[in-house]
Design a binder for these strands. Structure first.
Length: 566
DNA sequence: GCCGTTTTCGGCCCGACTGTTTTCAGTCG
């Protein structure tokens, strides 16, 4: 089943959420929530298209009904329940719920009391000042409504992380430098390092919220104010990106970071878990249920500990089984920057020279480092080879290697000479282009690439570019199996434009016992730091450090590198 | 609709902000 149809299924499930909410008159619908969860599971996991009913039901958040809906879609291309609801609620009416601030209840009232069933009708009613006359809607002034309509879809639009992160960092920085601010942090999906971001959450520690909020609202980049309270405000900045700011006291920052960094389902499950212990958790404190007796306003670590859990990395906080795993002590031992022993895909800026990269590697505590060159660029290749040769002889604390990056063709082969092969310490097969191939052709192509004995790492295995290209389709199970058979490690790249492979693939590989490597993909000394993104991305894939080859000590890594391919 | 080492039935996180509500409903995250 193709990725295209998977995307369509996600769209269908999300439409089902909106329709189900309308059908239940806008009441908090547990059914709608279940469909929303199913949409997330399908969006995250390419494997859902060819899973049996039993395997689908076993996924956290999917049950009998949603599993059957997914199977029905993949079998027939349709969902009967969806077709049925569509006849009751036309698409144009559902579209109105995409206006920020307009929910199911209000949309139904507009239809029933003012005969408004689409955007044009709503705009006409606003012009004729009919909306404000409806009881309870008086405050929806023409101006407010117009602003909301101009941001239609902002509730659901997601932008690539590499576009959002610099904007968010810049806002965070400005706030951090205010004298009345003692700390400023990014939370939300940015802290979880999701590949696409719907809105930015900034948390600031200050005893003077009014002053901080007024500075925030006056920032030149702010185009519209959505809400403005005593301790929080939401605004739109350039290109319609929504930014939420919350100001909390030093006491509240722990619970607030926990709340605003975790996915919705993690929060729900964590709070239900607190209930079992007669405790209640919110963004201000952990307290005894039904009272104001505060148990803790400490750090995230302390809050988890008081709930009988280890600290859970934000990347894991998605409500995908992490709390159950924490309770049975089976969470992966995640990678952190301190446990990395080397970086296996780096490069250097010709004007800076190799030395700066070696310095950066030492500063990170590495004991091995591979500098890569592309087999197709012969000048660069010769230059790297000569530099690596010189430095290798003079350096004993750092093992310096020359990695050959070989782009694979549509069949999975790469052209490089026998001389190259002898000069490289190992090869990294890099997937690039040839997006038009079928799923089975891509699968064959990847497997062929890994069968080359010189290839020890597979990089950019999906070829995705976030926001641009979704990635190729291939049989994940077959590719992971071939990687294990050929003793090839799968690279987790750190470039924010790619974050390749997607986390669901990493998790499947982790469960299957595959080896991975986290690489910075640095083009100069400074970019060695960006490996932090690869590390955080690996958390989303539940990667255990034992399966990440560049956490291995130098001797063990060398042994793996020299292991004859059999 | 999902879920369960107290439960296969009866629960289901919790709070901020907005509007015009004099005590609460709707929306959002």
């Amino acid at each position: 089943m193709t990725k295209r149809s998977r995307t369509k299924l996600v769209d269908a499930l999300e439409e089902l959420v909106a329709l189900q909410t309308l059908a239940e008159g806008g009441r908090a619908s547990f059914r709608a929530r279940a469909f929303a969860q199913a949409a997330k599971v399908v969006a995250d996991d390419a494997g859902t298209s060819n899973m049996s009913l039993a395997r689908l039901k076993a996924l956290p958040g999917l049950g009998k009904s949603t599993a059957e809906v997914i199977q029905e879609y993949f079998r027939t291309g349709k969902i009967a329940r969806l077709e049925e609801l569509r006849t009751q609620y036309p698409r144009e009416l559902v579209e109105l719920t995409r206006i920020p601030g307009l929910g199911a209840k209000t949309v139904l009232r507009l239809r029933d009391e003012a005969g408004i069933c689409n955007l044009a009708g709503l705009q006409k009613a606003i012009r004729e000042e009919r909306v404000g006359k409806l009881p309870g809607l008086g405050g929806w002034t023409e101006e407010r409504m117009r602003t909301a309509i101009s941001h239609i879809g902002a509730k659901h639009d997601r932008r690539p992380i590499h576009i959002v992160l610099p904007i968010a960092e810049s806002i965070r920085n400005e706030l951090a430098h205010l004298p009345e601010v003692s700390g400023a942090y990014l939370g939300g999906s940015l802290r979880r390092l999701e590949s696409t971001i719907a809105d930015v959450d900034v948390l600031v520690v200050s005893e003077e919220p009014a002053s901080v909020l007024s500075f925030f609202l006056e920032m030149p980049r702010v185009t519209d104010v959505i809400v403005e309270g005593k301790h929080m405000a939401s605004v739109y900045v350039e290109s319609g990106l929504q930014v939420d700011l919350r100001v909390c006291t030093p006491n509240e920052i722990g619970p607030a970071m926990l709340h605003f960094s975790s996915g919705r389902n993690h929060n729900i499950q964590l709070r239900m878990h607190a209930h079992d212990r007669d405790l209640s958790l919110n963004e201000h404190s952990l307290h005894h249920r039904g009272t104001d007796d505060v148990v803790s306003q400490g750090s995230e670590e302390e809050l988890y500990e008081l709930l009988g859990l280890p600290w859970i990395s934000p990347g894991l906080r998605q409500g995908r089984g992490e709390i159950a795993a924490a309770l049975e002590n089976s969470l992966p031992h995640l990678v952190d920057v301190d446990c990395l022993q080397g970086d296996l895909r780096t490069n250097y800026d010709e004007s800076e020279g190799v030395e700066l990269v070696l310095e950066a590697a030492r500063a990170l505590g590495y004991s091995y480092l591979a500098i890569a060159s592309s087999a197709e660029e012969s000048a660069a290749k010769k230059r790297v080879q000569s530099e690596v040769g010189q430095w290798r002889d003079r350096t004993s604390d750092l093992l310096i290697l020359h990695a050959g990056v070989v782009a694979i063709d549509d069949q999975g082969y790469s052209e490089y000479s026998e001389e190259d092969r002898a000069n490289y310490d190992f090869c990294i097969a890099l997937l690039d282009g040839h997006h038009q191939l079928s799923e089975s052709e891509q699968t064959e192509r990847l497997i062929t690439a890994m069968e080359d004995p010189a290839v020890r790492i597979l990089a950019q295995s999906s070829g995705r570019q976030i926001g641009e290209f979704r990635g190729i389709e291939f049989d994940e199970r077959a590719v992971l199996e071939a990687a294990r058979e050929n003793d090839v490690a799968i690279e987790i790249g750190s470039e924010l434009t790619r974050l390749d492979p997607p986390s669901a693939f990493i998790r499947r590989g982790s469960e299957a016992g595959n080896l991975f490597v986290i690489s910075s993909c640095a083009k100069n000394a400074e970019e060695l730091q960006q490996i932090q993104y690869g590390i955080r991305h690996s958390h989303r894939g539940w990667l255990d450090r034992a399966m990440c080859i560049n956490t291995w000590k130098r001797a063990r890594f060398e042994e793996w590198l020299q292991a004859p391919y059999s």
